[in-house]
Nucleic acid binder design. Structure first.
Lengths: 338, 338
DNA sequence: ATAGTCGGATACAACGTTGTAGAGTGACGG
DNA sequence: CCGTCACTCTACAACGTTGTATCCGACTAT
């Protein structure tokens, strides 16, 4: 079987603790002894048993990332970024999918499987304000996304309102006046949809444009098909518009397809802007202007914050923090100046 | 801190082993005792320490999935499927990204981090035939993808040649005769590109169509931009063609964009077929006909095979197996009958 | 010369769990 | 009435690692 400290110690003619000391770079080991131990380690191909180490130290070196599902590009790209950030810190990432299902999300929060890792980066979708208390968990937790405000945990997120306002203003500056929104959620306030819609309204307000409820397309989910369906419905109702703000890129791309199907031209007849800066937004026809919400920064910060909490066992850091990433408009072909 | 067996045992007035027996459903425990222990467990909110359990049992209940990168949709959807399959079996998945880089792939194979899990599902991209020996690893390993034939490990993959042949025949049956291939790799034989190109040639052969090297578009990577660039190059050379076979969906979608940019119509002037059945293939304009290579089946089988190997410590199962998934053509708008 | 310090190494216990061996109890058959 | 057996439970060791206490020798300061 796999070699242990005992095997190495026997071959090197030292105690197991000395081998352990060599491995952990404990300073007081004679160079000569160290060399002998190193040789033995290589000879046996010794690799430490991480379970034993975890048992001793109480830490595993892994973190959990819980998100709705990887087949949604936004979350796939988020996971990519989180894994890279974790790797830079020498940590490894375990992924749980919740499907955005509230029950499953609550289950993940208390799952024994979490004990396999040192902390959780959690992007909830189904949970609401009523579940805030469930976030009082006995392990380090960092939240992503928008569902929970003022929870008991650190929260890393994007400037939804400001960024959505900037996106809307971007369209207005380019001469668009009747801007459809695709992806709103009925009566939602605290989720991404609610916040982005608020940014939209702020921009209209600031520009002195009137808000027209007929321009708002509601969807339950944010898949491409929802964007297309919602757009088709608006087209069928004969609403007049000269621009579309997809509350995420996937919706925007779906809407763009529906617009083109209907014989309208993007961007000549209708300008389109999205939100998320997915990889695919560069390759649509026309390429999609969008908001880069700072995904890499979010991932990096979430990992750093979580690791801080993990390292901080006596609560020296203090209360839950809210951290907001920088956003940026990425201009492409779908929104030329008129 | 977290409760242990000792705490539960003390409260319930039994030995720790009895508590352990209750938890592991050992049959010979008096109902009365069992109930008392259960109560104590709930009272303390006891959850077993998985590190300790792992140390004892030698198993962690987690598996590693190593793949190029999650921001490639194909791999994101593969990861999604693997995680679901693992979850059904009560296992959890840790993800390593290799970026398709050979050095990084070899590193992953020997990383100590692997010891945090019971086995590896590995989708290599950079490794070649010369590295086959590196796959002789002292832990359960299941390979995905095409780079390695006849390796020392179980291999779950798709019927690349047959499926590519079927895709090509699908175009031929619909009256197309000059079929461009996008995404070929120079001189490659064993990779997905080489195999799919072989299927293409077989189909031409069977239909009595001549192979024209001018119709083959080479790319190094399989991103959307590569598909677009390669297609633009062929268009610039003035090659005549009436169909495009993208060796994956991403390439096909990129190529489709380039075709439309050039003023040609899909599918009227050019039919397009892809490979992978990504989610997004349904939502392009026109929607993309493609090959579903059996991704769910591959994920399910890979997990099942790996778990078998993990459970089979005395090598009762025997030699490495090759398992091929069923494929299927998914017909959409990009390939109407002429 | 002696106490104190430092470098270099070791023995032992402990992390929390489960397998093994075995002890105690009662029922049952001969 | 005793041996056997099934049931119920316990004590102990072990998984492989690292922290703590400790030991020995050599060097420094007084």
């Amino acid at each position: 079987m796999a070699a242990t400290l005992h095997d190495v110690a026997r071959i090197a003619g030292v105690s197991i603790k000395t081998v352990s000391n060599v491995i952990n770079d404990y300073p007081h080991v004679k160079p000569d002894t160290r060399a002998r131990v190193q040789t033995a380690i290589e000879e046996l191909g010794y690799q430490p048993n991480l379970s034993a180490r975890s048992l001793r130290s109480g830490l595993t070196g892994a973190i959990t990332l819980a998100l709705p599902e990887l087949s949604l590009s936004y979350f796939a790209e988020l996971a990519d970024a989180v894994i890279r950030a974790a790797e830079r810190a020498g940590k490894v990432v375990l992924i749980e999918q919740t499907n955005g299902d509230r029950a499953r999300e609550l289950e993940v929060l208390t799952s024994p499987r979490l004990k396999m890792t040192d902390g959780l980066i959690f992007s909830p979708l189904g949970m609401g304000m009523d579940d805030v208390a469930r976030l009082e968990v006995p392990y380090p937790l960092v939240l992503l996304g928008e569902r929970i405000f003022d929870g008991p945990a650190d929260h890393v997120t994007m400037r939804n309102v400001e960024a959505a306002r900037a996106a809307t203003e971007f369209l207005i500056e380019r001469g668009r006046k009747r801007i459809v929104v695709i992806g709103a959620h009925e009566d939602e306030v605290i989720g991404s949809a609610g916040l982005r819609l608020r940014g939209y309204m702020q921009a209209l307000d600031a520009a002195g444009l009137e808000f027209d409820p007929a321009l708002i397309g509601y969807t339950t989910l944010w898949h491409r098909s929802n964007g297309a369906t919602s757009m088709r419905a608006l087209l069928a109702m004969g609403v007049e518009f000269d621009a579309v703000f997809g509350l995420n890129d996937t919706l925007a791309l779906g809407a763009m397809r529906a617009i083109q199907e209907a014989g309208l031209r993007v961007p000549d007849d209708v300008a389109v802007i999205g939100f998320d800066d997915l990889d695919e937004a560069q390759y649509s026809l026309p390429s999609l202007t969008t908001v880069n919400p700072g995904r890499d920064e979010i991932a990096e910060t979430a990992v750093a914050t979580l690791l801080q909490r993990i390292g901080d066992r006596d609560g020296a850091i203090g209360d839950a923090r809210q951290i907001l990433a920088r956003y940026e408009i990425v201009e492409r072909e779908s929104t030329p100046p008129l």
